[in-house]
Design a protein around this nucleic acid. Structure first.
Lengths: 229, 229
DNA sequence: GATTCGTGTGACAAACCTGTGACAATTTCC
DNA sequence: GGAAATTGTCACAGGTTTGTCACACGAATC
């Protein structure tokens, strides 16, 4: 894991680098905006530690500007170092797109904890289990893309089928216009009623007990479809 | 190693205590702020697990306040339990001085892993050794990077294989999207589905009895993989 | 009664995804 | 420095999923 540390205070930067290395990171230092951009362009850094108060150069002035510049081209996590009593800086920094901030003075240990936390958030390590949808004895687990009825063996759905069913069950009991469903499932551009018809057909075969007389997914002629109506 | 668990949900607290004890820690419980401070003052605890949403008392209200109080006098590592969708809580907690956080809902296994990580980071003392993962008669010891089944001779894994299996078994029973696995194993930048496919393939050859019909590592087409599903 | 429209349905081809073996590049270990 | 192990890349087979076409059927309309 490559960490870019940007701070004009070389003593502090060195200290941080030492702590980083001990924590298993690979620190790279920069002492001004130019150096920071250079390292950033040369290396695929995983996270950036950025002192807000840097001596200015011509175009890029302080930490905020670096942050802004980087945000134009990258989502790499950024942690700001700010001095206490400067609420404004914090709000500004987070608005610009920083992921977190830490107040000086801080202990290296705190910073390491912070880095780990930010990285964890960025990589969405915590896998949020989406709750299954239910309708009477019918269940649909979007995480597993599986449906089952009562105790029967689960039936697995394809990606599109799952997206369609998610949308339908999320808006259970409502009439959903075909166009809305299409943009929800395929995206904005690809609009094609034919495909929707096919998809509904295939989904019905998997989830309806009697696909010829659908109960779960009802057709609303010339409007669209609806789940559990 | 003494762990202080602070949570007003006694069922959860008990469950955590059980998991802690099984992992070689010595858990102590508190169900409110007062109890927490009392245990903290009486015992030299090594780490604190703190639910941020505690019912208030007079002076000390919720988990944050406990955290603040403790930080006035001690550097003991603190892990916060927070609910999902509350980014603010996380930032706030970390700024107050917490070392890490974990999102509810979580599995005891995940919490134990987190505790070990924090302790290893923060203290030089010996941390109880990570217990091997188990699934039926299959075992995986991440410290030795060895797997074995029943009494058979252990098979050793490579570094990447071990990381992959750790992640899978830490979240066993869950569906893990390919992207998450990739960032967990390789890091943020290097994203390549091909490599994951290869790695899974190689791991399966080592751990599955019949690699053509995998039982441990299941494929969820166009989603990712899951262990013990 | 014929026509038109919207829908359901089967068949088929294109696109996509996964598993797999072979081999190259890199790292690790002696 | 060199061998062995590990990791990254490429190519391809086989299966699944998705898009497309063709057509049947019923209801509404003329």
């Amino acid at each position: 894991m490559k960490v870019l540390i940007v701070d004009d205070d070389r003593t502090l930067a060195d200290l941080l680098a030492f702590a980083m290395r001990r924590a298993g990171f690979e620190p790279h230092l920069a002492f001004d905006a130019q150096g920071a951009m250079q390292v950033f362009n040369d290396l695929p850094v995983d996270i950036i530690i950025l002192d807000v108060n840097l001596p200015g150069s011509r175009e890029i002035n302080n930490g905020f500007d670096i942050c802004r510049e980087i945000r134009k081209v990258s989502d790499v996590p950024i942690i700001l170092l700010t001095v206490r009593d400067d609420e404004e800086d914090i709000v500004k920094g987070l608005n610009i797109g920083a992921d977190d901030y830490i107040l000086k003075p801080f202990s290296p240990r705190q910073l390491v904890a912070r880095i780990q936390a930010v990285l964890r958030r960025a990589s969405s390590e915590a896998v949020p289990e989406a709750a299954p949808y239910r309708f009477q004895d019918f269940q649909f687990d979007p995480a597993r893309r599986e449906v089952n009825r009562g105790d029967e063996a689960p039936q697995s759905l394809t990606r599109l089928e799952s997206r369609l069913l998610s949308y339908l069950m999320l808006n259970q009991g409502q009439v959903l216009p075909a166009d809305n469903i299409i943009t929800e499932v395929w995206g904005l551009d690809a609009a094609n009623t034919e495909m929707l018809r096919q998809l509904v057909h295939r989904l019905r075969i998997k989830i309806e007990q009697d696909p010829e007389n659908p109960i779960l997914i009802k057709t609303l002629p010339s409007i669209g479809y609806g789940f559990g109506i």
